[in-house]
Design a protein around this nucleic acid. Structure first.
Lengths: 186, 186
DNA sequence: GGGTGCATGTAATGGGTTACATGATTCT
DNA sequence: AGAATCATGTAACCCATTACATGCACCC
């Protein structure tokens, strides 16, 4: 039936379920919502919205603006809502993990002194930054979206990030110590 | 210079640095080495080895076998070794995270009762299984590869998996409790 | 007879990012 | 003067998995 097997379409259905939006809006919203576990580029978003309109999953309305390009605002149709609910029921596909950092660490014995430590230190810094962002976002959401029935679910995904980053901070620190023992004098 | 910008080639250089191998061997080795943070399929491996041979990063020798297809055994050249070392120095690219599970949880308010709990419970089970595998692999490596100068680096990547999975087990349990409160009677 | 393992490779298909193309307005 | 923001879309390219194609040997 649906030509659009891809998850991109489902992510768009989900975001449009919050409120009607243009493709541009979707792109802007991503970093402030699902950005820490999902991403979509314009090159995906615009064609997908076009295809979904043809399939009747979303409806488009053109808003004319003066001295700005027209906005194409999309909203879910009944079919779109059903499609979203059906997809939510299905077990999520196994994720193929891919970490260039771990690949470099795995072959780290071939690297020069300090190279691995630098990589891990950088990684530690990004994880600590991520932790701060999760905490700040959580506070902001609790303030601005209090009472929204979706809020608990949004917090669960933030909490995932917090748990993950905390663990990776701990790993980074452990690993830095181990690398120092290995590499500082060899 | 190098036409092969991709990381696939670097992963192959790394694996071949352990010892010379055929494309088939590489594929077999992956699940027992870098499989928990990297993957490559035959459709990537064979063409990549061909291209890398043309670039002089690896050398191919054909081993004839009776009543079996010929084996094409690849080994690193001096250029290949250099390429690997140079790549190890470069900062790993930022990873774009993609989690279908979190996408479903984020939009979980639209799902029927118990759907989210099922997804999280399944995820919990896979993380617990992963933990067991990491622990078993660690013991096995320490027994079989004792003394190998690469061993400490291999253990670091395993340790990453352990930290990560432990954190995700904790998140799963927390989230299951929260979901029960939200969804069991609504 | 049928599945599995060895062993190589190509082709079809699907996903995804980046670059290109356009064009006005507003901010520095 | 030049960059950034709003706003849309297409095209080129890269990366990756899966399916296809071949063929022998071994085991049940």
């Amino acid at each position: 039936m649906a030509k659009n097997g891809g998850v991109t379409a489902k992510a768009l259905l989900g975001l449009l379920s919050i409120h009607p939006m243009s493709g541009y809006d979707v792109r802007q919203l991503i970093p402030r919502s699902i950005g820490h576990f999902w991403s979509e580029s314009y090159g995906q978003i615009y064609p997908a919205l076009k295809a979904m309109t043809a399939e009747g999953l979303v409806a488009r309305k053109t808003e004319r603006q003066d001295s700005r390009p027209d906005r194409h605002v999309y909203s879910l149709t009944k079919d779109g809502r059903t499609e979203l609910r059906e997809w939510l029921k299905l077990a999520p596909a196994d994720e193929v993990p891919r970490s260039e950092l771990l690949l470099k660490i795995f072959f780290g014995a071939h690297a020069g002194k300090g190279v691995n430590r630098q990589h891990v230190a950088d990684f530690l810094a990004t994880q600590e930054m991520a932790l701060k962002i999760y905490t700040a976002t959580e506070k902001q959401l609790k303030r601005e979206e209090a009472g929204d029935p979706q809020l608990p679910y949004w917090l669960m995904t933030l909490n995932f990030g917090r748990h993950r980053s905390k663990a990776l901070v701990a790993w980074s620190k452990e690993t830095l110590l181990e690398l120092e023992r290995l590499e500082s004098r060899g």
